[in-house]
Design a protein around this nucleic acid. Sequence first.
RNA 1: UCCUCGAUAGCUCAAUUGGCAGAGCAACCGGCUGUUAACCGGUAGGUUACUGGUUCGAGUCCAGUUCGAGGAGCCA
Length: 443
Amino acid sequence: MVTPINELAKHVGETVTLQGWLYARTDKGKLVFMQVRDGTGIAQCVVFKRDVDEQTFDSALHLSQESSLVVEGEVRSDQRAPGIPGGYELSVKALQIVQRAEEYPIGPKEHGVDFLMDNRHLWIRSSRQWAVLRVRTTVMRAIRGWLDEHGYVEVSTPILTPSAAEGTTNLFEVNYFDDKAYLAQTGQLYNEANIFAFGKVYCFGPTFRAEKSKTRRHLTEFWMVEPEVAFCDLDQLLEIEELFVSYIVQKAVQENANELKYLGRDLNKLTVISPPYPRITYDDAVAKIKEIQAHTTDPEQKSLLDITWGMDFGAPHETALTQLYEKPVFVTGFPSAVKAFYMEPYPGRAEVCKSADLLAPEGYGEIIGGSERISDPDLLLTRINEQHLPESAYKWYIDLRKYGSVPHSGFGLGVERTVAWICGIEHIREASPYPRLLNRLYP
RNA sequence: UCCUCGAUAGCUCAAUUGGCAGAGCAACCGGCUGUUAACCGGUAGGUUACUGGUUCGAGUCCAGUUCGAGGAGCCA
């Protein structure tokens, strides 16, 4: 019977079959220790010379890293056994080699980033990458799970979008027959159309940004989920967001405890993630950042924290601010000038808008950007003209405000940033199976 | 686009003031009944990123180029 490694604990004393790959091997005299991966975990398989015939022992002794194999043996509980989850090992009775692997480039020692990225197709086999990507799949499942359970309808939005509205410098241009098209950087405008058909909707897929960003939190292709809700104001939106994010985090803690432990993640920092999250206005955030700056002694850091009212936050500002909280923090009411044209202004204070960014703790930055959208057609038109956007491109979007307009709100959550935060990893590139970066399109 | 740093064996790195190209890991051979990135002995492994310059002599110094890393900017 083929048994997955993550279920070995249920089969102590039984003889089982594992099929997988040789992750690592070491030997000591009449013993060979094989670490075998099967996709669900890593288990130690011990070959003892007296238990097997000479040929089996010899092939175990010389088996190369990443060779594919089928191994049969008795499951034993042993505290010494390493692995994921570990604690159980196989006493090998039989070993079948499916393919003897050529010399494998990624060894058990440390490697440089460039080398690993060139070998991303192999690197994903390494435990650390495997663990992160397992968390990623849980996060993606939790995203769909929560939204589906709460009555959201997944309506796909186009990835090929028409000629552009505003500056196309940060969009990827593609040939579209005799015309030009652009890879979508958001599905939001379409979401806003979709709510009038379905009430609560979301789109979930890859988005593309041609920005020349070269930081630990930017990819040129990343996954984003964007829920949009009719009859919803900003306050209601924030309640949705904190329930949603908390659910995702707790799912990962429940389903990927082994993976997170392997990554060395402090689970206490995740279990505390539950509603409500602190809310702070942009005005107060600027004041707090100035306060932090006043207490900063390092001159370089001090100058990075420079801010005046009206500026958008940079990475150093976000990091400094989030270090004040153990939960994600909402920053509301950004200056309208630094936000998108479609955000609803605050009544009586048009210079700020009903926007909210959700900043993850521990310096992971913005994981959600959201807002209440302008519902009045005249105001929307005014804003479009103020920003010198081509009115014709937005005809259909303005239409939405003419036929039964309602207050509505939505947000976008970046999958890779969320995964990076949950896993506690340094760089967002490890949160994507095949990350696309400024200088990286291979493999 | 800017700032800083880097490129030497398959990988990670060392090489003193400019003076014989080195080690660990991986590979291969041998030893060991509990290894956890084992340990011990042995074998093999080099266009020092590229182009040019200085010099009796360049991995090392100079100029340019390419590629990469960290940070900033950018991120409706």
